[in-house]
Design a protein around this nucleic acid. Sequence first.
DNA 1: ATAACGATTCGATAACTATCGAAATACATT
DNA 2: AATGTATTTCGATAGTTATCGAATCGTTAT
Lengths: 100, 100
Amino acid sequence: MDTKKAAKIFKALSNPNRLELYFKIAEMHESSFPTDTDSECFVTDIIRSLNIGAPTISHHIKELVNADLISTEKRGKFLICKVNEELIEEVSKLLSLQKQ
Amino acid sequence: MDTKKAAKIFKALSNPNRLELYFKIAEMHESSFPTDTDSECFVTDIIRSLNIGAPTISHHIKELVNADLISTEKRGKFLICKVNEELIEEVSKLLSLQKQ
DNA sequence: ATAACGATTCGATAACTATCGAAATACATT
DNA sequence: AATGTATTTCGATAGTTATCGAATCGTTAT
């Protein structure tokens, strides 16, 4: 991954509300393999749990998608989000590699 | 680490030039144990290798220090930078933990 | 002492961003 | 059809930031 893309990803994670949003999405679908405790992440629930308005959430979600950190799927009137696990693992490794 | 602090760290890494600066500092001192290939990271050299002005570099270094990502040491008229390896490892783990 | 060099501070500017309220869109339910 | 709910778009605003040139400060070398 080149520096510019990495910076873009960090930028997407650099706002406290957006980072919390990302973490919430990640927590919902916790494993690569479906489990009993897995559940889908509806944006409505997030809006209730973070105290910022719906337009702002919408904006943050677009930023996360734009950085390729999450993907979304429309189901009826709801929006479902899930994280791009490969990308975040790549970023994690990029950071820990720096120290070797 | 709480979300706010994590967001602050990501913000510090969110500018391409600043991220490259950070990586260069990290590359200079590559291991926790001193080796033959280790060398100290002088800001002068960085200024030459990135093509942004000295005032901007100075600003970026302050941001990295402020996020606790690096520490600095003045030696004569030179400034030496080194990364806080524990912190970046912590961040790396925070990201990879999200997927379990 | 004075010049040269490394780094910082200052002031300015242009660009970006988080957030909001209001309005609009889309879907679902009655 | 009409209402309600979920989400998006729009326009505005206040705040932040990256970058620069000029000036300044410290240190070293002549």
